[in-house]
């Protein structure tokens, strides 16, 4: 059993108890993905599996045979940051930095979900494609806790990136 992590095939762990999170951190040394609660209650462990964001702490590693997993390390390195990472730095979208990789993985997936037209709990017309408002971004990021309270700055970073290069336009009227 193997999974592809950031483009490289790795054999899955022998211990069936090992979560995807612990496998990434302990066996593969990919410690950018964080353990904040280990129970799907904080989002610090968010990674992308086949492009979808999940809590890696609640997923057994052996259930990922054949999956393509992307972690923060694949999104951009310190000397080659992705636009979202650069925006987080510029807007101070973090303080202690512990929830940050999860926030960025989550935000990355969020942009794909918006591009696919997924609705959220605050979408006015659930049958229609969502209009990107601040409330939409806040709702869609709510699975990622930040105890330092950098939320305003995270949303500002996300708005900047979506406005600059996302397929979607921020609806300024609706955001106001």
């Amino acid at each position: 059993m193997h999974a592809r992590v950031n483009g490289t095939e790795h054999p899955l762990p022998h211990d069936s108890r090992r979560t995807l999170l612990d496998w990434l951190r302990e066996d593969l040394g990919l410690t950018g993905t964080k353990k904040g609660c280990d129970h799907g209650q904080c989002g610090a462990c968010t990674v992308l599996v086949d492009g979808r964001r999940i809590n890696s702490c609640l997923s057994l590693a052996q259930l990922h045979d054949g999956d393509a997993i992307e972690t923060i390390e694949a999104i951009g390195s310190a000397d080659a940051l992705a636009p979202l990472q650069r925006a987080f730095v510029a807007h101070d979208g973090f303080q202690c930095g512990y929830c940050t990789p999860g926030q960025i993985c989550s935000a990355t997936a969020l942009m794909s979900e918006l591009a696919e037209g997924w609705a959220s709990a605050v979408t006015e017309d659930i049958a229609a494609a969502p209009v990107v408002t601040r409330a939409e971004l806040q709702e869609r990021m709510s699975g990622n806790l930040c105890r330092c309270g950098a939320y305003s700055n995270i949303i500002a970073a996300l708005e900047e990136v979506i406005a600059a290069e996302g397929p979607l336009r921020i609806d300024a009227e609706a955001s106001a």
């Binding site: 989002g43 989550s106 609705a119 659930i126």
Partner: peptide
């Protein structure tokens, strides 16, 4: 389920309820 066009159009209650629960990460799994 919540992203499905048929569900959203014809059974919006189901999509709304699902989207009111948990987080995007949890709903993906």
């Amino acid at each position: 389920c919540a992203a499905d066009g048929r569900v959203r159009r014809d059974w919006p209650l189901l999509a709304q309820a699902i989207l009111a629960g948990a987080s995007p990460q949890l709903r993906n799994r």
